[in-house]
Design a protein around this nucleic acid. Structure first.
Length: 203
DNA sequence: TAGGCCATCTGGTCCT
DNA sequence: AGGACCAGATGGCCTA
């Protein structure tokens, strides 16, 4: 069987098994806006506003009324403090009847949009981190927690290699023979990390 | 079918 | 005051 190596210095276009490689020409923001705009209509998911939250905030309100209410187009003036893109997006959603007619709800929707964008930025950072940790070519996508743990172990090992002054490949080979003992993490301190590193092309 | 993982919504708290 | 951040709740999807 042909031996396979991974070179971490390769261009990101490498067809090695890295998950979540970003297309360098990918236009993130317009895609994001469309996704956010369409998520409700695509999933058909009902906002929790229609149940618990509405009743707790507005105990006197009839849920059916709240759910059916939408802002009138000419009266649709989302919070002026919103960023331009958020205001535009919110207006779009109001026009489509996706935002119920209550000032607090409008604010809450804007906050939801910001939160989703924030989580997406965190997720894109996770994707980038995944691209830096060693994975097996046949391995399924690492979860967030595994990505963090593996990254910690990987950094620790790289630090040890630097401090040892040894050739990286021979250091890993030695670890493979004798078993890698890392103090930092119980999850990845077995042969797993060194096995992953055996796929790394060091030179 | 249970468990893991994830996205989303939400309200509270912190920060600017 | 408003946005950022956070953690809890919830529900969907996938896999063993």
């Amino acid at each position: 069987m042909e031996e396979m190596f991974f070179d971490f210095d390769q261009e990101p276009t490498s067809d090695f098994a890295f998950w979540g490689q970003m297309d360098p020409n990918f236009q993130f923001q317009p895609q994001l806006d469309n996704i956010l705009l369409d998520c409700h209509s695509l999933t058909g998911q009902l906002s929790p506003w229609s149940s618990f939250a509405c009743q707790s905030m507005f105990p006197d309100a009839q849920l059916t009324d709240l759910d059916s209410q939408t802002l009138q187009l000419d009266g649709a003036e989302p919070d002026s403090s919103l960023a331009a893109d958020e205001a535009h997006e919110l207006n779009n959603r109001i026009q489509r009847g996706l935002v119920p007619n209550h000032p607090y709800k409008v604010q809450r929707h804007a906050a939801n949009i910001r939160e989703r964008k924030r989580m997406l930025s965190i997720n894109s950072a996770f994707e980038e981190l995944r691209s830096y940790v060693p994975t097996f070519p046949y391995e399924k996508r690492l979860s967030k927690i595994d990505t963090l743990r593996l990254a910690i172990a990987y950094i620790a090992l790289l630090r040890e290699i630097l401090l040892s002054g040894c050739d990286p490949k021979s250091y890993v080979d030695e670890c493979m023979k004798n078993g890698y003992k890392n103090q930092t993490n119980a999850i990845w301190n077995t042969s797993d990390l060194t096995a992953r590193l055996s796929w790394v092309k060091w030179d």
